[in-house]
């Protein structure tokens, strides 16, 4: 059957041998730029126009309903003169950088361990990747139970005779932010691992073997052979992690609600609280604009830092 088809195709294409070049060029231009117009219009209307209108409200005192007045830069002055908002900014950066660093180190270690050799690596990859596909909200509620005063951690401490260390972990001013970080890392490590496994598959085994024959230690092989080979994967994984870390919201709302007394508030939770719960939509929009600029700045810095080294490579 397939032989017949091939013959028919060959037969059909034979007389057009001389016109193959123009036909190929027509094939290459299959589809036209304006075919994407509905999509482009949608993206512009839903994403950029909506975001721009939101940005416009950052310069107003709109409460979310009714009329509003222009207040210039007042909302931004309020943000930078309010110490609690500065605390939210610090929390945002702590969670973003903390989760990126720990998730990527853990993800890389897992990827190296599960790259080759280990017989059970496929099942282990699935197990470590599983948290990524779960809903952040559902995961956070399970962790909230684990961290609860009557939860398994405190029960374990009490059974070990360490009852004096039992506490309401998500409501402890010192520990609450760490509980959020633990949940973020637990859920983000899997995606970092998958990206690094994909990156490691492009590192030639021969080069590693050559380095080993030349007497390079395991660490030297990792630093001078493996790491340069997976630099694009590092760039992707850290950029995604940083952007997701800067806009973290679900986990905080489910675990701590920004508490205790604002100890785990981030810019994203403040945007929500100000805009929708407290009716300060203009102020919330200004906070959102600040968050957008921060994400943009860090994403650009991070991209430039990693792409420069890739060029050298």
């Amino acid at each position: 059957m397939s032989a017949t088809l091939r013959t028919r195709d060959e037969h059909r294409e034979q007389p057009r041998d001389d016109t193959r070049a123009p036909r190929r060029s027509r094939q290459l231009s299959f589809g036209h730029w304006w075919w994407a117009l509905p999509g482009i219009v949608m993206v512009l209307a839903i994403h950029y126009v909506a975001t721009s209108i939101g940005g416009f409200f950052a310069f107003t005192d709109w409460s979310g309903i009714g009329s509003f007045a222009f207040v210039g830069l007042d909302n931004f002055v309020k943000i930078f003169s309010d110490p609690t908002k500065f605390g939210s900014l610090l929390n945002t950066l702590f969670l973003a950088f903390g989760s990126v660093i720990i998730s990527n180190v853990a993800g890389l270690v897992l990827a190296l361990g599960l790259n080759r050799g280990l017989k059970s690596r496929y099942i282990l990859r699935v197990l470590f990747f599983m948290p990524v596909v779960l809903s952040p909200l559902a995961v956070s509620y399970i962790w909230k139970f684990i961290f609860d005063y009557n939860g398994p951690i405190n029960l374990m401490l009490k059974s070990m005779g360490l009852g004096e260390y039992a506490k309401a972990w998500v409501a402890d001013p010192t520990w609450a932010i760490w509980t959020v970080l633990i949940v973020l890392v637990w859920q983000n490590t899997g995606i970092a691992m998958v990206i690094y496994i994909a990156g490691l598959s492009s590192v030639p085994v021969e080069v590693e073997e050559a380095a080993a024959i030349d007497g390079a230690t395991l660490w030297q092989r990792f630093v001078h052979v493996t790491l340069p080979g997976i630099r694009p994967a590092v760039a992707i994984s850290t950029t995604l992690g940083l952007v997701n870390g800067l806009r973290v919201f679900d986990q905080i709302m489910a675990l701590t609600g920004g508490g205790p007394a604002g100890a785990t508030e981030t810019l994203a939770t403040q945007v929500y609280k100000q805009s929708f719960a407290l009716g300060n939509f203009g102020f919330g929009a200004a906070l959102a604009l600040v968050l957008t600029v921060i994400i943009l700045v860090f994403a650009v810095i991070q991209q430039r830092a990693t792409s420069g080294k890739q060029g050298e490579n």
Binding site: P260, A261, A277, L278, G279, N280
Partner: peptide
């Protein structure tokens, strides 16, 4: 007069319970 007053009380009570405020 506005939801922020009650929010300050809610957050404040939490802060009193944890010793933050």
């Amino acid at each position: 007069p506005n939801p922020s007053v009650y929010d300050a009380l809610q957050t404040g009570v939490q802060g009193l319970l944890t010793g933050q405020k």
